[in-house]
Design a protein around this nucleic acid. Structure first.
Lengths: 204, 204, 204, 204
DNA sequence: GATGAATGAGGGTTCATTCAT
DNA sequence: AATGAATGAACCCTCATTCAT
């Protein structure tokens, strides 16, 4: 059908607001960033922000949706996969990659949890994280495996925000942490495989 | 009973303030908890809080000092130890234990980082965490070991706050996570030993 | 400024705005109805309203002029009549009828008096009501008659907005209230006639 | 030094706020009166108002409760009386008297109905008026009597706010309007008596 | 005939904090 | 040991209105 691009000389203000807001939310926190600050930084009035976004929360929502898309797509993908060791490994690998673009919002979620607790966008953000966790823990797996999955996930997830001690570039760190996490996961896999074998053969 | 006036004992108000404030800081967040709320919950006036504490931050400081003592002592202990694999293992084990009492303040630090960023108490709190990290990463250790230490620490530290998926009691979780973390650490030790050997022999 | 194809029918947007605005002014109040609401309800932008009307007040003015016409005509008529009992009766009867179409604006005036106080349209609206009152009170009439006229007017005027307790259809209520009001008025007339007679004859 | 404002130490501020707010609510309307205005008029800050009242609406609530007490007491009294002509007369008489102190709040209710529609205090205010109406209309009375009761009530109630045309002092007006209203009511009584007689005798 | 973008002024409300008593 | 009263600064948000296009 005819592409109804409403184009016109649309102002880029909406995007600029998102960008500025993101920077400030990350560096000063969501609550501590006032709309006045965002507006001043942009050289517009507070009311201008309200022309483009319904509320302060709405700004964060838009940011969350945009930056979180890779993770959302990953979740959609994971839901289609059969639960199992291989899926867990693949999911962890892809999650580590998806985090690259999503780091800023997770950072915000991380550092402003108390504030975001009552906000709808907080709920959304948290659900994203929990979805990944749920999918990683899916399938009837033994307690030990649960623990290993948890460790692997914590390593990959929180390793993305913290860690100054480690040294190396961000990408190097990411790769290395992923490797360690996979190793932790594999021990679980090995053990599970053992158990499966034991069950099937009756111990050998 | 016996003594006529219950006034004989020192006012426990200061402690009650700390306790109430802690509960609210944990459940609603530091910024989102107003002094009015604390005062109302206690049945005193806001001004009463100011009689016992200089500022809002001061309340958190007192809490932090009290609950963080075990960790502080652990840090003092660790500084006396020679760096090395064995110390790292022992430190991780003791840290896992120390966290049990310190969880609430770490929770607060965790969920209000943005807010605590500019506060002196935030600095103190962060330094405690960073001290542990620095000590765990101490000694000239290779990159791979850094990464494993990081993973072990993330597992133990963040495992204490999050994790509903795993199942089991808090104590079971703690033990299990510690076990996995130690395993991750040991692999590093093994590898380090290997490398050391390799170096000595001239690579193989 | 050249005359171009003069459309047979002017855009009906102006009328639609008036209609929607009237509905909202009645149901939510003048002040509490924002131009945004009106525009949204109509599916146009706020700026569109400003194409058709100079200000928000102007919208109400247009509505007032249209719905108030019967009352304005009544006022014009009454000004031509000689003051006296008969005119008062007739005026009251006609006013009761004229109110039928004018109720919405009087409702608005009634419920938003405080807001309309400083507005020109408020002045206009009030003047309409006051004109009727002035004409009903016209002629050198004694205090008692003034009071009866007032009662009759209050009955007819406010009876049109309020009254759920009475029962019956709106038209039935209107008729019945008018009847009672006329009765009140007539007592005044009778008494005035008596007094006149008494004066003339000297009383026995 | 140089400050010459020797204000009372006692807390008469709450009362002064109520008084000032009442004046402004009456003269400028509830919505159009900002807290800034009230505060400025009193020479305090907006925050001071919030020390004494929880919200803007709360100020009006307090006023309503204080000034409306006579009417509330009247309602309580009326609920104890047996319905009937005599009670209606007495209620009307007492209501007319009670209105003297309550006029300002009814004025506010009257002129800000649209604004007060969504406020709890508006509900309360309206209920007061409706209670009186319900009590006046109580008992199984014929349609005609309902109409007369309505007229009487409209006369007494709205006569208290409006009416510049009539002349005389406020008290004179009140008395005169009450007299006319009672007359209207009595006609109803007479008619009811007639009907009763007619019923008893078996049609005349 | 209408829109998109923006503004200035103001709204009610909450907060940590102070200080005389 | 604690209170009552008050403040100043900041908050998010809404409004009627303007104007280039």
């Amino acid at each position: 059908m005819g592409s109804s691009t409403p184009q016109a000389r649309r102002s880029d203000t909406r995007e600029r607001i998102q960008k500025t807001a993101l920077d400030l939310f990350v560096s000063r926190g969501y609550e501590k960033t006032s709309l006045r600050e965002i507006a001043e930084e942009l050289g517009v009035t507070k009311a201008a922000l309200y022309y483009h976004f319904k509320t302060k929360e709405d700004i964060l929502s838009a940011i969350s949706e945009e930056l979180g898309r890779p993770v959302d797509e990953l979740i959609a993908w994971a839901k289609e996969q059969p639960p199992g060791l291989e899926t867990r490994r693949e999911l962890l690998i892809r999650y580590s990659a998806a985090l690259k673009s999503a780091i800023p919002i997770y950072h915000i979620l991380q550092e402003n949890q108390a504030t975001l607790r009552d906000l709808a966008v907080g709920q959304t953000l948290r659900e994203r994280v929990e979805s990944i966790a749920r999918l990683m823990h899916a399938g009837g797996i033994p307690f030990d495996t649960h623990v290993r999955v948890a460790s692997a996930l914590l390593t990959v997830h929180f390793g993305a925000f913290t860690l100054d001690e480690v040294g190396g570039t961000d990408e190097q760190k990411r790769q290395a942490l992923l490797a360690v996490a996979l190793e932790t996961l594999d021990s679980a896999g090995a053990r599970a495989a053992e158990e499966a074998t034991a069950k099937a053969v009756g111990k050998g």
